[in-house]
Amino acid sequence: MSIQHFRVALIPFFAAFCLPVFAHPETLVKVKDAEDQLGARVGYIELDLNSGKILESFRPEERFPMMSTFKVLLCGAVLSRVDAGQEQLGRRIHYSQNDLVEYSPVTEKHLTDGMTVRELCSAAITMSDNTAANLLLTTIGGPKELTAFLHNMGDHVTRLDRWEPELNEAIPNDERDTTMPAAMATTLRKLLTGELLTLASRQQLIDWMEADKVAGPLLRSALPAGWFIADKSGAGERGSRGIIAALGPDGKPSRIVVIYTTGSQATMDERNRQIAEIGASLIKHW
């Protein structure tokens, strides 16, 4: 067993022997301040990774656009098919120029040779490549099948209805392509620590998230040296922004954090800054 596999296998073990965790309302004060600064709703939840206990939450059962955070769930569904012998990570998928959609920095470079399922998941999570996500959605049967996968996990809230990039439209009061912070946090925890996926697939999923290259201005910008984070960000229309993450000190994750916002007129930089400040408060009061 590799060191990384050992780390993920012992996530519940280490967490069980940690000192009790206590909620700190100071972080919620910052979440509410972010709402004021952005002029928009902000949803927040913080779960203990081992027990699933909610440590703090704000608007945990209000719907927010998922945006690209759905790509972690998508690759979880792909990995479940791999575990069941219905898919192979090494299978190569070929596609054409007509398949390319807006923001496809990886797939646009491989029109000639195609990409493997493993490479597509890596591109979808680490670079948020939209064509990679659409190609992977095709392998599982489309958005409705991802929703069905989530329902089978016990998540009857999260739903995907459309493809990239239309799913980022974020129309107010439109339930399409949305989740709730509580539902997303619980589902992410199941994917990373539950028995739904094999140990190898859980490790692969967290490795992809740990290698995320496009979430630097968010929670990662607030992390002290030595902290662990595996995350996936999302951005959408109407001032929408979000991030889902597993993080913790001492090089291992111990909490799940989900943050979503929508309806702001603020710039992307300002949305990023507010999420980073929430992260800084979380870490300060850990």
Rank of each mutant, 00 (worst) to 15 (best):
Ser2Cys: 10
Ile3Met: 08
Ile3Trp: 07
Ile3His: 12
Ile3Phe: 11
Ile3Pro: 13
Gln4Trp: 08
Phe6Ala: 07
Phe6Ile: 10
Val8Gly: 08
Ala9Ser: 15
Ala9His: 12
Leu10Thr: 13
Pro12His: 13
Phe13Trp: 11
Ala15His: 08
Ala15Ser: 15
Ala15Glu: 04
Ala16Leu: 14
Phe17Lys: 07
Leu19Asp: 10
Pro20Tyr: 03
Pro20Met: 04
Val21His: 05
Phe22Leu: 13
Pro25Gln: 13
Thr27Lys: 05
Leu28Arg: 08
Val29Glu: 14
Val29Met: 11
Lys30Met: 12
Lys30Gln: 10
Val31Ser: 03
Val31Arg: 01
Val31Lys: 00
Asp33Leu: 12
Ala34Ile: 10
Ala34Cys: 10
Glu35Ser: 05
Asp36Ala: 15
Leu38Met: 11
Leu38Gly: 07
Gly39Met: 10
Ala40Leu: 05
Ala40Pro: 02
Arg41Thr: 10
Arg41Glu: 07
Val42Pro: 00
Val42Trp: 09
Tyr44Asp: 01
Ile45Thr: 12
Ile45Met: 12
Glu46Cys: 07
Leu49Lys: 04
Leu49Phe: 15
Asn50Thr: 14
Asn50Gly: 14
Ser51Leu: 05
Gly52Cys: 04
Lys53Asp: 09
Ile54Cys: 09
Ser57Leu: 09
Ser57Arg: 11
Arg59Tyr: 04
Pro60Met: 13
Pro60His: 12
Glu61Val: 11
Glu62Arg: 06
Glu62Cys: 07
Glu62Asp: 10
Arg63Pro: 08
Arg63Glu: 05
Phe64Gly: 00
Met67Pro: 00
Ser68Met: 00
Thr69Trp: 00
Phe70His: 08
Lys71Arg: 01
Val72Gly: 03
Val72Lys: 00
Leu74Gly: 02
Cys75His: 00
Gly76His: 02
Ala77Val: 11
Ala77Asp: 09
Leu79Gln: 03
Arg81His: 10
Arg81Ile: 06
Asp83Leu: 02
Asp83Gln: 09
Gly85Val: 06
Gly85Gln: 10
Gln86Phe: 10
Gln86Val: 14
Gln86Ser: 12
Gln86Thr: 12
Gln88Trp: 12
Leu89Cys: 05
Leu89Gln: 05
Leu89Glu: 06
Leu89Phe: 08
Leu89Gly: 06
Arg91Cys: 04
Arg91Lys: 10
Arg91Val: 05
Arg92His: 10
Ile93Arg: 03
His94Val: 13
Tyr95Met: 07
Gln97Ser: 14
Asp99Gly: 06
Leu100Gln: 05
Val101Ala: 10
Glu102Thr: 13
Tyr103Cys: 05
Pro105Ile: 07
Pro105Tyr: 05
Pro105Arg: 05
Pro105Cys: 04
Val106Lys: 07
Val106Leu: 14
Glu108His: 10
Glu108Pro: 07
His110Arg: 10
Leu111Ile: 13
Thr112Trp: 15
Met115Pro: 01
Arg118Phe: 11
Glu119Phe: 02
Glu119Asp: 13
Leu120Ile: 06
Cys121Met: 08
Cys121Trp: 00
Cys121Phe: 01
Ile125Gln: 02
Ile125Tyr: 00
Ile125Arg: 00
Thr126Gly: 11
Thr126Cys: 11
Met127Gln: 12
Asp129Glu: 01
Asp129Cys: 01
Asp129Asn: 00
Asn130Lys: 00
Thr131Phe: 05
Leu135Pro: 00
Leu135Arg: 04
Leu136Lys: 00
Leu136Arg: 00
Leu137Asn: 04
Thr138Ala: 15
Thr138His: 14
Thr139Lys: 08
Thr139Val: 15
Thr139Gln: 13
Ile140Leu: 10
Ile140Tyr: 08
Ile140Asn: 04
Gly142Ile: 01
Gly142Tyr: 02
Pro143Cys: 06
Lys144Asp: 14
Lys144Thr: 14
Lys144Tyr: 13
Glu145Thr: 11
Glu145Gln: 14
Leu146Met: 13
Leu146Ile: 09
Leu146Ala: 06
Thr147Asp: 09
Thr147Lys: 08
Ala148Asp: 14
Ala148Lys: 14
Phe149Tyr: 10
Phe149Cys: 06
His151Arg: 15
Asn152Leu: 10
Asn152Ser: 15
Met153Tyr: 08
Met153Gln: 09
Asp155Gln: 02
His156Met: 08
Thr158His: 01
Thr158Asn: 01
Arg159Leu: 05
Arg159Gly: 04
Leu160Arg: 01
Leu160Tyr: 02
Arg162His: 10
Pro165Glu: 06
Glu166His: 10
Glu166Thr: 11
Asn168Met: 06
Ala170Gly: 13
Pro172Cys: 11
Asn173His: 12
Asn173Cys: 13
Asp174Ala: 05
Asp174Phe: 03
Glu175Ile: 14
Glu175Lys: 12
Arg176Ala: 08
Asp177Ala: 02
Asp177Tyr: 01
Asp177Arg: 01
Asp177Leu: 01
Thr178Phe: 02
Met180Ile: 12
Ala182Asp: 10
Ala182Ser: 12
Ala185Thr: 03
Thr187Pro: 00
Lys190Leu: 10
Leu191Ala: 06
Leu192Ser: 05
Gly194Ala: 12
Gly194Glu: 14
Glu195Trp: 06
Glu195Ala: 06
Leu196Cys: 14
Leu196Lys: 15
Leu197Ser: 05
Leu197Cys: 05
Leu197Ala: 04
Thr198Glu: 11
Ser201Ile: 02
Arg202Val: 08
Arg202Gly: 07
Arg202Trp: 03
Gln203Pro: 02
Gln203Trp: 07
Ile206Asn: 08
Ile206Thr: 14
Ala211Met: 10
Asp212His: 04
Asp212Ala: 04
Lys213Met: 14
Val214Tyr: 05
Val214Thr: 09
Pro217Gln: 12
Arg220Asp: 03
Arg220Pro: 02
Ser221Asn: 11
Pro224Phe: 03
Gly226Lys: 11
Trp227Met: 03
Trp227Cys: 02
Trp227Phe: 08
Ile229Lys: 02
Ala230Leu: 05
Lys232Asp: 00
Ser233Ile: 00
Gly234Trp: 00
Gly234Pro: 00
Ser240Tyr: 03
Arg241Ile: 03
Gly242Tyr: 00
Ile243Tyr: 06
Ala245Glu: 00
Ala246Lys: 03
Ala246Cys: 12
Pro249Ser: 08
Pro249Val: 06
Asp250Trp: 10
Gly251Thr: 09
Gly251Gln: 13
Lys252His: 13
Ser254Asp: 13
Ile256Gly: 02
Ile256Cys: 06
Val258Asp: 01
Val258Ser: 04
Ile259Cys: 07
Thr262Met: 09
Ser264Asn: 07
Ala266Leu: 15
Ala266Tyr: 08
Thr267Val: 10
Met268Arg: 07
Glu270Trp: 07
Arg271Asp: 06
Asn272Phe: 02
Asn272Val: 04
Arg273Tyr: 12
Arg273Ala: 10
Gln274Arg: 11
Ile275Pro: 00
Ile275Val: 12
Ala276Pro: 01
Glu277Pro: 02
Gly279Asp: 03
Ala280His: 14
Ala280Ile: 14
Ser281Leu: 12
Ser281Glu: 14
Ser281Ile: 13
Ile283Pro: 02
Lys284Val: 10
Lys284Ala: 13
His285Asp: 07
His285Tyr: 14
His285Pro: 02
